[in-house]
């Protein structure tokens, strides 16, 4: 197992390096000039030039790159211009917000998509099958920014069922003591049910918006995987042996069909974490996605670089986790890099 992990990590190095280089080049190509930003509204071109020298922006690109790598190695991701805070610290405080939102969305999606997929497979070709395909495809066809706006309008503004889209907590609450950074978990640790309910209330709309997007891949994979298993010999044997079809489907078939679904789950998670940037923007969600968008628009290098780095590392880590999980769920899977 350790060998597998080491192998995977080594294999991931070139990709991560590639990400670092590309991000650096892209961020330097962004329009806008941090020196002009620092110099203030009334600055003269000379003043801006001085500040550019001070920030080292007049030096050759490769020198700046070496500095950047040096900072990275020391764990220094630089400072954000727009919030004035160290990027590392911001990412650490914002990542749980994004992760909590994404995970909840994933849970919701799994709860809906997996039964739907199983049903579609068992009743292949029936109206349920078609309906499931149409519904999940419709879900993945929705522009998240549009669905989000619509949900806020209907459920907050018109009906008043949802709490105001003001981020992770209504203003009359304060965050629970930091343990995991997930408000749902931390509030339970603090035995504060009210807070739990409040945090959950804020999560419902954005998580649903995201979940709708994740239905399609999960339902399809479940269906395909179930179909494959259902047509296999041991299921036919079980059926022939007179076992109740419920038992066959749930106990025998589903357990064997779960493996590809787990793989898809990992892919969908990392995809969602990147895809929720627009959802976070719509719901004022203080996650890393909205942080990245705002920084990009402000040509604020450091947070963009930090965000991309974080996502790349997460991606590598998730893929590793999936491989390891694979091995745990199905011992037959060999170590094969």
């Amino acid at each position: 197992m350790l060998q597998l992990i080491a192998q995977r990590l080594t294999a991931a190095v070139p990709g991560v390096l590639g990400v670092i280089v590309v991000t650096f080049l892209l961020s330097r190509a962004l329009p806008g000039d941090p020196a002009a930003y620092f110099a203030g509204p009334a600055a003269t071109p000379q003043a801006i030039e001085e500040i550019r020298q001070k920030l080292g922006l007049d030096r050759p690109m490769w020198e700046q790159f070496i500095d950047y790598i040096g900072d990275l190695v020391r764990g220094d991701l630089g400072n954000s211009l727009t919030t004035g805070q160290p990027v590392m610290q911001e990412l650490v405080t914002r990542l749980p917000a994004s992760a909590e939102l994404t995970l909840l969305a994933l849970v919701v999606a799994v709860l809906v998509a997996v039964p739907l997929g199983v049903l579609a497979a068992v009743k292949q070709g029936s109206w349920i099958d078609h309906l499931s395909r149409v519904v999940t495809t419709a879900g993945v066809s929705l522009p998240t920014f549009f669905t989000g706006l619509l949900l806020v309008y209907v459920f907050y503004y018109k009906l008043g069922w949802a709490p105001p889209p003001l981020g992770r907590l209504d203003i009359y609450f304060s965050p629970p003591d930091h343990v995991t950074g997930f408000y749902l978990i931390d509030s339970l640790i603090a035995r504060d049910l009210e807070l739990f309910v409040a945090a959950l209330g804020q999560l419902i709309l954005p998580a649903s918006t995201l979940a709708v997007f994740a239905l399609a891949p999960l339902a399809r994979m479940t269906r395909a995987s179930m179909l494959a298993v259902l047509s296999s010999d041991f299921i036919r044997t079980a059926k022939a042996g007179g076992l109740r079809s419920h038992t066959v489907v749930v106990t025998y078939a589903f357990r064997n069909a779960v493996l590809p679904v787990v793989t898809t789950l990992g892919m969908v998670f990392s995809f969602l974490l990147g895809a929720n940037v627009l959802v976070e923007k719509v719901f004022s969600w203080p996650g890393i996605g909205s942080y990245a968008i705002e920084s990009l628009i402000a040509s604020d290098y450091a947070p963009v670089q930090g965000f991309v780095m974080t996502m790349a590392l997460l991606y590598v880590f998730l893929n590793l986790l999936i491989d390891v999980l694979y091995g745990v769920i199905d011992p037959r899977v060999g170590i094969d890099a």
Binding site: T23, S27, L273, G274, V277, L296, V308, M311, Y315, V316
Partner: peptide, 16 residues
Amino acid sequence: MAFPLFVLAMGIVAAL
């Protein structure tokens, strides 16, 4: 693939 894809697209358009 290691990039958050939408942010990569944003970056490319913003930069170019």
